[in-house]
Write a protein that binds this DNA or RNA. Structure first.
Lengths: 347, 347
DNA sequence: TTGTAAGCGTTATCAT
DNA sequence: ATGATAACGCTTACAA
């Protein structure tokens, strides 16, 4: 209802003056006028149109966050980090669930582009297909030309600067942890074959196995969901049961854990199960899950902060950053029992 | 870079004509001109400024969702429902985490108001304090006067029309389930004393207990978090251990479950634990959690759909709606063991 | 210190 | 069928 014009009128000053005091800009304004403007604004319940403002300043104060699924705690925690940093800086965040569908993702990028968001934050790995990457890069090209900042978080994405951890190395280390425990028949539950993070984690697993002179043969694949992990574990457990299962993310590890328990396989006595991500659900599982830990909330914060820094310095490139990961040993991993290690015990 | 002006120019038509074809409005435009405009738009990578558009149409195409914490699956699933419906309708959603802080919530309402979002969706119960409610209502008053639609979802909120379930009745029914199982010493882990949903659930518990001639005396309070539930359960278990614990939400029930297990109390043999919400974490817990079920995703969808309906019919009031709840009996509840029912067994 | 006026990129009204 | 032109609500040179 009440625009700046009304406020100015009521305060008996020009729109310019009203704008100046309302924006707290560092500009000389008579104390009296200032007071009148403030009073008028208050009385009229004036609230500046961020839209109009954004139109002229070419700065919307909104950032878009693209996640696979905000219900997955892995994504939720990162998005929360972004939002925390955004709020502190006075930014708003639009959350978009892509369901890992490149087409949906592209459409969102286009829409967010229409809204002239100040930045786009891609959370999670991208789809490796050449054609998909190319298409995404195309829309991103026009987005960046428009001045939009783009950054990836917790996963490689179309070659964008990323706030990330070394997924491959982390998976490699975790595999070594398993190896160190004495496991030889280690099963791996990978994520979708075309998702970059899934591929990197699997690559780390394979390299560690090879380095140990072992064939990474027990590999199943899931879709990063609890059920996907549950089913994959059942498959793995049905033939030559491994003594340990390394799932490419926590959700699947949890599914695997329950699949084992359901099948009467004791964890960790009969089977070790480890995950990747260290979401709180993993920490609260029974037994608690050994997993690769990564500072998700902090990474979300960092992604937004990197965007903020670039925005302030009028840089167009966001500074990438590598975070350390950890191997969090908890109750779901242990040395293989002698019998099981030799494959004598069958579930 | 390229505005509609450039497109019009390149196509050799007026801005008006360009706008008409670009918006697919039902208005006669020569096929030839249309083709030229479309080509020009494509070549120039034209993307309409949703900001400019919103400014003139007074319709931003954005809705704001206010949740306590998007990391809590309870909120995440509802927000996801909202987003799904929003996407389908071409809307974008801004997610705001209030951490259940009324001040933060109000500030967000103000900011979202500045952005002229088309609607505000409050997810979760509000703070009952008279003063807080009044303050919120005030900001909401100016927001609605500005044409913004407001609705509550999964919790009473400042008297707004709500897409909800009957929390009180649900808690009452769940308590009766416990009673029916033979439990008498039933502990309750409530949520914050000033949160409406927490109060309603507790009220349902109390009424069912009273109706059964029992004193609802074993009451602890948490903050709706896993740890809060864990600690509350420890307190409950330390004195006169109840034979059953009803937590006001799943997160706390999960905490209680682990507290029991950690203390060597077997669930459900020695202790029954039930929750409220039926988040997937509850379903995957060991043992799986008996809980009050409510269609969170669907409720989120419904909230957005209600908003959409009001928006389309130019109504200012959103239609409220009651969803049914269920008592989902799973593995964490059972009849009390004879010994324990008499209080002879101590943890 | 203060105000005038030119945009920002669209949509929408009203002629033509 | 098509096109000027006035909003939309604000910021920001540029004057005064």
């Amino acid at each position: 209802m009440a625009g700046i014009k009304e406020v100015a009128q009521k305060a008996g000053v020009s729109i310019t003056t009203a704008s100046r005091v309302l924006n707290h800009v560092d500009y000389p304004v008579a104390a009296a006028a200032r007071k009148r403007v403030e009073a008028a604004a208050r009385e009229l319940h004036y609230s500046p149109s961020a839209l109009a403002r954004a139109l002229v300043t070419r700065h919307s104060g909104i950032v878009g966050v693209l996640v696979g699924d905000m219900v997955d705690p892995y994504f939720a925690e990162i998005a929360r980090g972004v939002e925390d940093a955004a709020r502190k800086a006075g930014y708003l965040v639009i959350v978009c669930n892509t369901d890992r569908d490149p087409a949906v993702e592209r459409r969102y990028v286009a829409t967010l582009s229409d809204y002239r968001v100040d930045a786009l934050i891609f959370v999670g790995g991208d789809i490796l297909t050449q054609s998909e990457r190319r298409k995404l890069k195309q829309v991103l090209a026009v987005a960046t030309k428009r001045g939009m900042l783009v950054v990836a978080c917790a996963g490689e994405h179309a070659g964008l600067p990323a706030i990330d951890i070394d997924h491959r190395a982390a998976a490699h280390d975790m595999t070594e942890h398993l190896l160190g425990l004495g496991h030889q028949r280690i099963g791996f539950i990978g994520g979708p074959a075309d998702v970059s993070t899934a591929v990197q984690r699997e690559s780390g697993f394979r390299s560690a196995m090879s380095a140990a002179g072992l064939q990474p043969t027990l590999i199943a694949r899931g879709d990063f969901t609890y059920n996907g992990g549950f089913e994959a574990a059942r498959r793995l457990l049905s033939k030559e049961p491994p003594t340990a299962i390394f799932a490419a993310n926590d959700q699947m590890a949890l599914g695997a854990l329950n699949a084992a328990l359901t099948a009467g396989v004791h964890v960790p006595d009969d089977l070790t199960v480890v995950g990747f991500g260290d979401t709180s659900a993993a920490q609260h599982a029974r037994p608690s899950l050994t997993a690769v830990g990564m500072p998700r909330h902090e990474m979300g914060l960092a992604a937004m902060q990197a965007v903020l820094a670039a925005l302030e310095s009028h840089t167009t490139r966001v500074e990438p950053r590598q975070f350390p990961y950890q191997i969090l040993v908890r109750k779901s991993s242990a040395a293989p029992s002698a019998a099981r290690a030799q494959g004598e015990l069958v579930a």
